[in-house]
Structure formats: C-alpha cells, structure tokens
C-alpha cells in the first residue's frame, strides 16, 4: 500500500468527520429548497377555502341574526353563549365575522377584477402604441404611482364619497391598476413583434382578437402574482378605510368596519373586539400571499460562493 513517494504528500482528514472539514452534507429537503421547486401550498389553500366556504354559507351555521343588537350584552367577553364575545353594539362577533368576511372577500375580488381589467387594457394600448403615446401613458401611470395608494384612495373617496360595497370596490379598483399595467406593457412590447402576432394580423385578426388569443395568454402568467397580491392590498385598503371611518359605515359589516369600533374597545380594554377580526384578516391575507408566491417564478443557483 505504501508508496515510496507517500512522504511527499500530507494526508489530511483521513479519519475526520466531513462536517468538521467544512464539507456540508446536503439533505434532500435542502436541495429542493435551494432549487426553489414550488410545491402547491396545500395548507394555505385549505384554510382559505375553509374561510371562503364559511363566509358563503354562514347563514347555515351562525344561527344568530347578524344585525341583532343585544343591548343587555354589550361588550361581553367571550363565553359559552357568545364564543367570540359581543362588540360595543351588542352584536355577536362569531356571527358577524362570517358575514363581514363575505363582504371583505367580495371587495377584494371585485376591486381586483376592476383594476386588472383597466391594467390589461391600458397596458396593452401602451405597449402596442407608438413611442410618443407609450411614453406619455407610462409617465402618467408613474405620476399616479408616486402617490401612496392609500392617500390616492382617500382623495378619490373624498371626491366621489361612495359609502357602499360596490362604490368602495370601484374606488380601490380605479386607484390600483398602475403597477400591473406597467408589467402588461413590458410583456406586450416583448411579444408584439413576434411572427405569430404578425401572421395573425396578416390573416385579418383585429386588435381585440390579437389581444385575446395571443397577448393575454402570454402575460397572464407574469401578472398572476401581482394580481393575487392586488386582492390582498384591496382587502387591506378597504379595512383601513373603514377602520378610519371614511370607508364603509359600521352597519355595513366588514372586517374593517368591525375594527372601526376599536376606539371604544381600547377605552374598555375589550381585546376580543380588536384581536378576533384582525386575526381573521391576517390569516386570510397570509393564505392569499402563500398562493400568490406559488405563482411567482424564481431562479437561483444552488450554493453561494461565500
């Protein structure tokens, strides 16, 4: 075994543990994580589905009329009859949380539908238009983007002054389309000169046809993540507005308008009025985020060089 030359070489680490030598053992989970192979977020989807189903079918299991104000049970802490307690108006929080969720989720979805619609149309026009029109349109959207979204919403809300579910959704929708429009425009610019779009145009496809058949399927994947995130920010915007008292009034139940009672709740230290709707809100947002992240592509090599 021993060669005469062996004394020229030093053998290091023959009997050492690889870990102490700085060689990292890579587990399978670690590889998967590093490759960023996305698994569908089953838990988040399940929780979200549960919340949605609960909100849709709430009348089946809550029993109590959400608008009934039990004046003898104002501000009651959670107990056996009211498992989440009652709010400062004497409403049972367990039932109104599901009724409120119905509206909050609807506003999130409807506002996003509006903003995505505007974004797709605006972005496509900007992407297909000539250079001058394109840059004017993009500058315009950038100017609007420079205003914090909530300030913009407050401004539009002050001007239009809609205090109902549809009105609020529209206001959130027409103030939240800019960043998606920018993405659509980038994608449209990228594919508008491809051969298949050219052929489609040559064969007589009009703008609408090209948009629906060729452009939309291509940018759908790219904007998906942003669209899902817009659902999230729409829900947050509504709840913030209603909480501040310039969104939906207290008798239109949403998670935000439930939280608008928190001023009174703080005075009496009724934590359940603040914590319970908030936890529902945060859990829903978290599930939506997890789903959104699933749609997001990412690339990265296995190891750092550090």
């Amino acid at each position: 075994m021993l060669n005469p030359q062996d004394h020229l070489f030093e053998i290091i680490g023959a009997n050492q543990n690889p870990e102490t030598m700085g060689v990292k053992e890579v587990s399978q989970a670690g590889i998967l994580r590093n490759l960023r192979i996305k698994r569908f977020p089953v838990a988040a989807a399940a929780v979200l589905l549960l919340i949605i189903l609960g909100c849709v079918f709430c009348s089946l299991f809550t029993g109590e009329d959400p608008f009934r104000m039990e004046l003898t049970h104002i501000n009651a802490a959670p107990d056996r009859t009211h498992i989440f307690g009652t709010d400062t108006l004497g409403r049972d929080i367990w039932s109104i949380i599901w009724y409120g969720g119905r509206r909050s989720l609807f506003i999130g979805a409807f506002a996003t539908l509006i903003s995505t619609g505007i974004a797709v149309i605006y972005g496509s026009i900007s992407g297909l238009a000539g250079r001058a029109v394109d840059s004017v349109m993009m500058r315009f959207s950038e100017i609007l983007l420079s205003i914090p979204s909530l300030l913009l919403i407050i401004f539009v809300q002050a001007v239009i002054g809609q205090r109902n579910v549809i009105g609020i959704s529209i206001i959130i929708g027409i103030t939240g389309w800019m960043s998606v429009a920018k993405m659509v425009r980038t994608e449209v610019k990228r594919i508008r000169d491809s051969e298949y779009v050219l052929i489609s145009k040559m064969m007589g496809g009009n703008l609408l046809h090209v948009m629906r058949k060729h452009l939309a399927p291509n940018f759908a994947g790219t904007i998906m993540f942003m669209v899902v995130m817009n659902i999230r920010s729409a829900i947050v915007s509504e709840s913030t507005l209603s909480f501040l008292g310039i969104g939906l009034p207290v008798d239109i139940i949403t998670w935000g308008s439930m939280l608008s009672l928190s001023d009174k709740a703080l005075l009496t230290g009724s934590w359940w009025i603040i914590l319970i709707p908030g936890v529902f809100l945060v859990v829903t947002l978290l599930c939506v985020t997890e789903l959104g992240n699933y749609f997001r592509g990412s690339k990265s090599s296995l190891h750092g060089n550090l």
Binding site: S149, F225, S233
Partner: peptide
Amino acid sequence: DLIERDKSEEVKHHA
C-alpha cells in the same frame, strides 16, 4: 421591474 417581480411582500403601498 426587478423589484416588482420581487414584490413578494407588500404593499405598501403599497400601499
């Protein structure tokens, strides 16, 4: 554009 793609956690304006 990079940041928009990276926007896993926002808003904020957002918000």
